[in-house]
Amino acid sequence: MARRRPERFLRWAMPLGLILVVLALWELGVRWNDTPHYILPGPILVAQTLVADWHTLYPSLLVTLRVTASALAVAVIGGVGLAVLFTLSRMVELSLFPFAVILQVTPIIAIAPLILIYVENTHLALLICAWIVAFFPILSNTTLGLNSADHNLVDLFRLYGASRWQMLRFLRLPAAMPYFLGGLRIAGGLALIGAIVAEFAAGTAGTGSGLAYRILEASYRLNIPRMFAALFLISVAGILIFLALTLLSHLLLRKWHESAARRDG
């Protein structure tokens, strides 16, 4: 116990310390070289801009987060739903899986402009873009998980005359949980990327209000500090999404799954 505490402290202190050192070097470098702030602003100026521009950046952050969250939610519903359908019917899987792969391998930046043309509602168009990127890892991981149930347990369920629904509810879905959560963590980051990419595409077309749009707008005005401030918010949002999903995964799996359960002794 006595040995574990400093280790735990170091786990946080080391990366935090390193980040502070890098930030300090950045600030010093900018000051020593007298780098103009329209080329590279120092972290202090970025922080000041973040505070000063909070009234425009914060609503944009909310817009981006809303798109990300709704895309992720739709991806979860669609991905899990389709995965369940795949396990129930091999024909459905064979027919639909190629479409999922096509959607996945086509770069979102290339389809986003088309989607923005065809879908009039910008918010909906952004959501579709983010959904396309986020949905595949959930689908493929959940499908894998649903098919990973222990064969002997499948036999046991059959022996006791379990219905398809019972097999799904009591066996396949719980067995798929760790896989699903792994996919969800990937999808969370991807949904944000999808939302940002789509906002860029929409921003170039002159509409939008999310963080990516703020970056575009600031770049037209050579307001580099604001670009950095918006970038910082995007990163923080990405990290928070990842941490939240990691926590969710831990809470759901800690009692039974090897990845989350703590080893004694």
């Binding site: 002997n152 046991l156 006791y160 019972q166 009591f170 066996l171 719980p174 067995a175 799954h257």
Partner: peptide, 26 residues
């Protein structure tokens, strides 16, 4: 009743729930 070579328990369920399974399915 069938006992497999491996215990074949559901890792996400407690001992009680594992034993309850056949009755639950009924």
């Amino acid at each position: 009743g069938f006992v497999f070579q491996e215990p074949t328990l559901m890792p996400w369920a407690t001992v009680f729930d594992n034993v309850h399974l056949p009755l639950r399915l009924q």
